[in-house]
Amino acid sequence: MGTKLKKTYKFAFYTSSLLTLVLSGLIVIYELVFHTVIWSSVLIYALVCFIASFFIIQYRVEHFIYRRVKSIYNSVSLLDAASLRKDSITTDMASLKAEVEKFAQDKKLEIESLKVRENFRKEFMGNISHELKTPLFTVQGYIMTLLDGAIKDKKVRKKYLKRASKGVDRLLYIVKDLDMITKLETGDMTLFREDFNLNEVIENVVELIEMKATKKNIEVEVISPEDAVMVSADQERIQQVLTNLIVNSIKYGNRDGYIKVSVEEFNEDKYSIKVQDNGIGIEEENLPRLFERFFRVDKSGSRKEGGSGLGLAIVKHILEAHEEQITATSSFGEGSTFIFTLQKTKPTTTKETTSKLGLFF
Rank of each mutant, 00 (worst) to 15 (best):
M1R: 10
L19D: 13
T20Q: 03
L21C: 14
I27K: 15
I27G: 06
L32Y: 02
H35A: 09
S40Y: 02
V48Q: 00
F54A: 08
F54W: 10
I56E: 06
Y59V: 09
R60M: 10
H63V: 01
I65C: 07
R67L: 04
K70H: 05
L79R: 05
D80Q: 06
R85C: 02
D87L: 10
T90M: 04
S95N: 13
K115G: 12
R117P: 02
E123F: 09
F124K: 12
F124Q: 12
F124C: 11
L132F: 10
L132Y: 00
K133Y: 15
T134A: 11
V139C: 09
M144I: 13
L146S: 09
L147V: 11
D148A: 15
K152H: 06
K152Y: 09
K152P: 00
D153Q: 02
K155A: 05
Y160R: 04
R170F: 02
I174V: 04
I181V: 15
T186F: 13
D188T: 12
F192R: 13
E194C: 13
N197G: 06
N199V: 06
N204F: 06
M211V: 12
K216F: 13
N217M: 14
I218K: 09
I223A: 11
A228L: 06
I238C: 06
S249M: 10
D256I: 00
I259R: 00
K260G: 07
F266P: 00
N267P: 12
I273Q: 05
V275C: 04
G281S: 06
E283H: 08
E285Y: 11
L287K: 15
F291N: 02
E292S: 11
R296A: 07
S302Y: 02
E305H: 14
S308Y: 04
G311C: 03
L312N: 03
I318Q: 01
H322N: 12
I326D: 07
G335P: 02
I339W: 00
T348V: 04
T348A: 05
T350P: 01
K351F: 10
